[in-house]
Design a binder for these strands. Sequence first.
DNA 1: CCAGGTCAGAGTGACCTG
DNA 2: TCAGGTCACTCTGACCTG
Lengths: 408, 408
Amino acid sequence: MTDYSDPLNPQFSGVGLCAVCGLTATGVHYGAATCNACKAFFKRTVHSCLTYLCASSTDGQYQPFLQDPKQQSPLCPVNNASRKQCPACRWRRCLMSGMQPGMLRTVAPGTESERYPRLHRAEASAARAAARAAARAAAAANQAASGPAASTNSSADTPRTASPSAGEVESELCKTIRSMDRPQFSMETSTMGEDFLSVEPRELAVIVLPCLDAHSARLVQFAKDLPGFSRVAMPDRIRLLQAHWAGLVSFELSMNSVPFTGLLYFAANVCVPPGRVSAFNSSLAMRASQQIRLTARLLTEWNVSRIEFLLLKAIFMLQCPPGQHFDNPDEIDKLQSTFLRELRRICPDVVRRGKLMALSGRINSIRLFCLGFWSSYFDRQAIRMPQLFSEMLQSSVNSEPSLVTMDA
Amino acid sequence: MTDYSDPLNPQFSGVGLCAVCGLTATGVHYGAATCNACKAFFKRTVHSCLTYLCASSTDGQYQPFLQDPKQQSPLCPVNNASRKQCPACRWRRCLMSGMQPGMLRTVAPGTESERYPRLHRAEASAARAAARAAARAAAAANQAASGPAASTNSSADTPRTASPSAGEVESELCKTIRSMDRPQFSMETSTMGEDFLSVEPRELAVIVLPCLDAHSARLVQFAKDLPGFSRVAMPDRIRLLQAHWAGLVSFELSMNSVPFTGLLYFAANVCVPPGRVSAFNSSLAMRASQQIRLTARLLTEWNVSRIEFLLLKAIFMLQCPPGQHFDNPDEIDKLQSTFLRELRRICPDVVRRGKLMALSGRINSIRLFCLGFWSSYFDRQAIRMPQLFSEMLQSSVNSEPSLVTMDA
DNA sequence: CCAGGTCAGAGTGACCTG
DNA sequence: TCAGGTCACTCTGACCTG
Ligand SMILES: [Zn+2]
Ligand SMILES: [Zn+2]
Ligand SMILES: [Zn+2]
Ligand SMILES: [Zn+2]
């Protein structure tokens, strides 16, 4: 039995105070002892995919989540009087106290937007943001007209379509997936130093993090647009994204760096040579970097097409991690098999398909290296994490109890 | 003429940005260039007597208003994104940018609660809190009987009636006192400099003294109209007014400054931030200012209603100072007990009543500080005193032999 | 017990009138 | 122009059901 009298266990200490706001808790909700109000707040937030801004953050940035409370950037107080004042910090406290988005039960698919109209809005604004980003990328591409690499043509934007055998008739599914694909983006050049290659590791992180955040956002969008993914219950969607987010972003980095020249392309105009990573003095970062590069080399050597990559991304995302609960794993498996079928069609070669599918193992190990590195990095460094990256890192770390964060 | 091109004058700089939140201003509202939203916010706040707490304030205290921006306790950022997050700091910024509550036009008496239901709510909740015990004792049958009466809200049209259980019928005495009450007055704007906050102490006195004189005149009128006061013999009336004049005018200032924001309102359009007082270089003035402010804060925190305030004013005025001769002290005591009885009815909560009555001690000390300061000030400064103020000060000082006029 | 769900109420600000 | 005024909108949390 749990020791309910353990004063060090905030979940059951004394009267039972809300781990988020300090009010009397009404019980354990979604993984932490909270009051009614914070329970409702958490529910709303997850269901409606809300994001918040903290007013106390000097530049309006999102506040990062840090493991060590002492290293944590200052949180706005959240108590009975001030609960409403900063939803952003309230949300951070929810995550800090161990509330798990995955503990929300199934929402009948298709009803979310009615019950949680903000979902609508969030998607609309996300679409707008995506459009803006695309416009910005296009503008950047146009501006960098001198740049020979990227031609303005859209066909060049989805390059490397060395699709092998079955090029003649593309299925509807492939067409859809390909239409979801987005061109490589450029980061604001203003954020980049002149001699980027010699920046301090801390500055390297500052440059690289927004790229990772952008990739995370694109991944979420990819998931949302993925045919059939909306049929998966919302909590399961969240679980899948949590589970695969870090690995799939790394996978994207690898593909982004094809044809592989030794450089890792975080964005079209942000690349990192192998030597730079050692400045972090982290074996986890080194191993992650090594594996991402190796993956990029393999993708180059095997001449992996864009559509193969996209299908692999979908397939890997729809892989229920063993030992984790899902509301409806059968539905997910069914959806995954759709994409497997398509991959079989696109890539009939069994040996090749085997090699491609085997990338998932490598990606999984990269995922663990990355999570371990970034979470320990933010524990030690007072650096601001981009919002989406921060939240996904947090939830991933929460659902990965065996995570190694120590550099051996 | 004002230099409209002055880029350092935020009120008229360029595009015209909101002095509170930085959005594009729609014009000058209540004394400062603000956006639509901040205008509405200011209006709501003043009309509904709202008070706010800042979440960043460690102990949930009210944030003081300080003149010197460097001395100012840190303000929460207020911008387009974060406007809603901290009403307290938004309110402070409103005041800092020069918005004047006095520039709201008079509200037809009796209509406030309809137009600004929060007034209603605040009072209803105060009444509920005060009468909780009585309400609990009431039977369900009684509740049914009083239900219709309460739901019509006819009594709520006369606002600030924190009258609790006996809310259904207001006594004749209360009605009379309330009818004597006069709205807050504004001073001629011509007497006010453009940048009133930076005037010399001497000019500050010139601005403030007419206000004090007007308050003195009103106090005399209040006494004359007070039911039963005419039965008191004239010499005793004069003694009472002499004894309590300074304290009651200060009390009026405190109530005038509710909801307390750190500013003392001498009139609807004349307010003084704490920092200004130090220019007098007088510890007596400082202590008086401090105590008046503290009183205003208490009145705000305790949500003291108008009728409670008026009754207290009457009760304090009818308090014969010990050791002083009165022709007919019994008559005065009898009259005072009338108002005490009424206060008991209005405010049945013994604890609350005790706190309210205990204000008399604080007011008395304020009285001594004020008398000491002003009398010494007029000894040193060749300044013209308003007539009534002058006369009352003179007589008060004469009848207060132990007065300390020296700044320690 | 703890999920899901509902809805009245509070604060907001765009927009209107005089 | 700048007062006063309205009201649809969102977030909130008490309260309910299964
Ligand atoms: Zn709580
Ligand atoms: Zn915050
Ligand atoms: Zn504004
Ligand atoms: Zn604040």
